Computed example of a mutant assay.
Amino acid sequence: MPTTFTTSKIIAATGISKELLYAWEARYAAVVSTQGATGRRQYEASAVRRIRLLQKLVGKGSKISSVATLKDEELVVALYHQSAPELIELLNLLRTRAFAAFESQVAAFCERLGVLDFTTRIALPLMAEVGEEWEAGKLSVAAEHFATSTLRIYISAELRITPIARRAKTALFTTLSDERHELGILAAALVARYSGWACLYLGPNLQVDEIIDVARHSRPKLITIGLTSEDRGSAQTELERIVDVTAKDAIVCVGGKGARKIKGGARLLVVKSIQEFAALVGTVPASAQ
């Protein structure tokens, strides 16, 4: 990840407008830039995470004037302390490398909340914050790997033991090649299984030809693709190819950070959250008529 960002790179990474970015900087000192050798503004890499946190808080109703001066860690607390205090606790354990305590708390939260609720309400936003802190250099690679592996174990186990509905239709879950982050599609598979779908979870990192081959043989009604890379120029073409060569009654669904750059269509749906995906699989009939 670059150590500094130009204004255009900040806009591309966060979706903020130039006018709003400059207003947040000039009026509220919410972010800080320096002047580069060419005279243009430059932002530290950590500004990307900070802007995303501010966007989430403002989107939830906070005034920028009330949160602009908070430290990044305080922004995380402000964002989640009411809706998911468990997330704050788990994130702090990772920051201090208290891995055994992290695993113990994950087990306790899964037992108390149920794995599905824990996954959708806590685990996914937790890993989003873990990724942001890792990119900003505030969390170790070991902490990110441990969190991912621990959560994968619990979600995978729940997926395996959840019964499949009688005469359930099939949903397929994977990521494109070189897309190795799988918790999003694993969580989506669990949501679909609870909604009555028979889930073919293929794991991450599959070539398009492999996805198409499996789809032709299993004839899924739903193909869910995780996309985290925000600069994969071939993603639109790859997804449209899957749509074109699979059954005409199948829907291709794409989610993840990289999905916001995908142009959807009649059979190519872009979902922005696990809650939106849950609404989709609850709306599309999962049982044969």
Rank of each mutant, 00 (worst) to 15 (best):
S195R: 15
S195I: 00
S195M: 11
S195L: 11
G196M: 11
G196K: 10
G196R: 11
A198T: 09
A198W: 10
A198P: 00
A198F: 14
C199E: 05
C199I: 07
C199A: 12
C199K: 05
L200T: 01
L200Q: 07
Y201R: 07
Y201T: 07
L202S: 02
L202P: 01
G203V: 13
G203S: 06
G203L: 11
G203I: 12
P204H: 11
N205K: 07
L206R: 15
Q207I: 01
Q207H: 08
V208P: 00
V208H: 03
V208F: 03
D209V: 11
D209A: 14
E210F: 01
I211Y: 04
I212F: 01
I212A: 07
D213H: 14
D213P: 00
D213T: 14
V214E: 05
V214R: 11
A215P: 05
A215K: 08
A215G: 12
R216V: 03
R216I: 05
H217N: 10
R219L: 09
R219E: 09
R219H: 10
K221E: 08
K221W: 04
K221A: 08
L222F: 04
L222S: 00
L222P: 00
T224D: 01
T224L: 09
I225V: 14
I225Y: 06
G226Y: 07
T228K: 08
T228A: 14
T228F: 09
S229P: 00
E230H: 04
E230D: 06
E230Q: 15
E230P: 00
E230M: 15
E230V: 15
E230K: 13
D231M: 11
D231Q: 14
R232H: 04
G233M: 13
G233R: 13
G233S: 10
A235R: 10
Q236F: 08
Q236V: 11
Q236I: 11
Q236K: 09
E238W: 08
L239V: 11
L239A: 07
E240C: 03
E240R: 14
E240D: 11
E240A: 02
R241I: 02
I242M: 06
I242Q: 04
D244C: 03
D244R: 15
D244V: 01
V245I: 08
V245C: 00
V245D: 02
V245M: 01
T246H: 03
K248F: 02
K248I: 09
K248L: 08
K248R: 13
K248S: 12
K248D: 11
A250Q: 03
A250S: 15
